[in-house]
């Protein structure tokens, strides 16, 4: 929800990033205030996941220019774990499988690490079990999820739910959901969206990366940005997603000139 007096959670200025010497992000400007939900749309290969991973601190990407403030700290100076502990969360487009690590062990470790940092009590395995089962109900997840290895042999949809579960546990200040909707059938999509909506409040913010307008029927964005070749080429309200749905991305190229420079 847009409110005039909200504070900035994320301030990105002129962000350029490369991988193996190839520039992928070519100057991103973008501000997220608390309480807001932003959608980022764009064709495959436009740089959406790159932006998400640069924000989360993936070491394969080199930031060559620009700045990112998280609240008022220099995000780019922090290693990934410090970003997570500070309240940044990335739901991966392709969640990683970790054979041999039980999901419950992983979730508790992540939860306790972040809790400790916030000066709160850690939960022992029994307490955590109650806590996590409660959250799992919200996402309609089967209890056997906990005993399996992290994401190993999970279906695409199960992996995505596991990401949203982690988000629900860690209560991040800023969540970036990278195509959490792809691979989900409509029922699963609704459940995931419901989970996201329960987490969203006035003190946090979300960036929802998606290909499809259908997710935005359930998670209503305050802003929609369109990415193309490593830049945000268009920004609008939630109706922009509908326009894209009707006209396709070619329409952007035609209208880009007149709309260039608009930013949230």
């Amino acid at each position: 929800m847009i409110k005039k007096d909200s504070s900035n959670i994320l301030t990105i200025q002129d962000l350029h990033a490369s991988i193996n010497g190839t520039e992928i992000l070519k100057g991103i400007d973008f501000t997220v205030r608390s309480g807001e939900i932003h959608a980022i749309m764009g064709l495959n290969g436009s740089g959406k996941s790159t932006l998400a991973k640069v924000l989360a601190g993936h070491s394969a990407y080199e930031v060559t220019q620009g700045s990112v403030l998280f609240d008022d700290i220099d995000l780019l100076a922090l290693p990934p774990e410090e970003r997570a502990r500070a309240g940044l969360f990335l739901a991966f487009q392709y969640p990683i499988e970790i054979p041999g690590v039980a999901n419950t062990q992983f979730l508790r470790l992540a939860y306790n690490t972040v809790q400790t940092r916030r000066g709160k009590e850690e939960l022992d395995p029994l307490e955590f079990d109650d806590f996590v089962r409660e959250k799992m109900k919200m996402l309609d997840m089967k209890p056997d999820f906990l005993d399996r290895s992290v994401n190993e042999g999970f279906s695409g949809g199960e992996k995505k739910r596991n990401e949203v579960l982690q988000m629900a546990l860690l209560e991040p200040k800023l969540s970036i959901l990278d195509e959490t909707d792809s691979g989900l059938d409509i029922d699963a999509l609704k459940i995931v969206a419901q989970g996201v909506n329960q987490i969203a409040n006035q003190n946090n913010a979300m960036i929802v990366v998606t290909h499809y307008q259908r997710l935005l029927d359930y998670i209503v964005p305050d802003y929609v940005h369109v990415m193309q070749s490593g830049r945000i080429v268009m920004t609008g309200g939630k109706e922009l997603a509908l326009e894209l749905e009707t006209h396709g991305y070619d329409w952007i190229s035609a209208n880009k000139q007149s709309l260039a420079g608009v930013s949230a």
Partner: peptide, 12 residues
């Protein structure tokens, strides 16, 4: 895998 765990708050 290391990055995934770091993104959840674990040190390298």
């Amino acid at each position: 895998e290391i990055f995934y765990l770091q993104s959840r708050g674990l040190s390298e």
